[in-house]
């Protein structure tokens, strides 16, 4: 059945990892580099990690509400 409305609000967090990788006009630069990798490239690595964290959080909050 549907998760309670309260937990479904958490799904709005997913906007963050959806929008973050699309900010390329703002990330289109070399500096600061990380291990020699230009910002434009390592920013997307950071986005992938962000996606893992945010999706995991949303998944866990929804699941916990199911148990209640």
């Amino acid at each position: 059945m549907a998760a309670p409305a309260r937990s479904r609000h958490w799904q709005w967090l997913l906007i963050i990892p959806t929008v973050a990788p699309l900010l390329t006009p703002l990330t289109n630069r070399i500096e600061p580099t990380l291990m020699g990798i230009p910002f434009f490239f390592w920013y997307q690595f950071a986005c992938a990690l962000l996606a893992i964290v945010v999706i995991a959080i949303v998944h866990l909050t929804i699941r916990e509400d199911h148990r209640e």
């Binding site: 799904q11 699309l22 996606a51 945010v54 999706i55 998944h59």
Partner: peptide
Amino acid sequence: AVGWFAIPFAIVTTPLTF
């Protein structure tokens, strides 16, 4: 850089998949 489009594309699909 243009070839890098595949990376944001792949990342964006994951929250949408959820």
